[in-house]
């Protein structure tokens, strides 16, 4: 096993760990806002480590550029997703409370 392969394995295992953590968080956390926190961990770190590992393994500059773009877009999309869903849920809760108060 070469040193590159070893690093790939380590990166993939760490990425898998974060995906497991994210999935368990989405399953076990009590409310939506803490689940969002778990989701962004899987998005940022899990995908980031797996992307790094695969970029090392494939070792082609064009593929590495694509993988980097995938990760950057995911970072952007996942943080915006987090904000948008949380904002949406807050508004929905307020609407609901107002309706019950009437």
């Amino acid at each position: 096993m070469t040193i590159v392969e070893l690093i790939t394995v380590i990166f993939l295992v760490v990425g898998c760990f974060f995906f497991l953590a994210g999935t368990l968080g989405v399953l076990r956390f009590p409310d939506l806002f803490s689940r969002l926190h778990a989701l962004t961990k899987a998005d940022n770190l899990g995908l980031g480590f797996i992307a790094a590992g695969m970029a090392l393994h494939i070792a082609s500059p064009w593929a590495a550029l694509k993988i980097l773009l995938i990760w950057l877009f995911t970072l952007l999309a996942s943080s915006s997703t987090c904000y948008l869903i949380a904002h949406f849920q807050k508004e929905q809760d307020q609407l609901k409370n107002r309706k019950e108060g009437e």
Binding site: F73, L76, A77, S80, Y83, L84, H87
Partner: peptide, 15 residues
Amino acid sequence: QDPLLRQVILFFTPV
């Protein structure tokens, strides 16, 4: 009205 929503849409359109 949401500034972040507007920026996300404007970013992803050319992408």
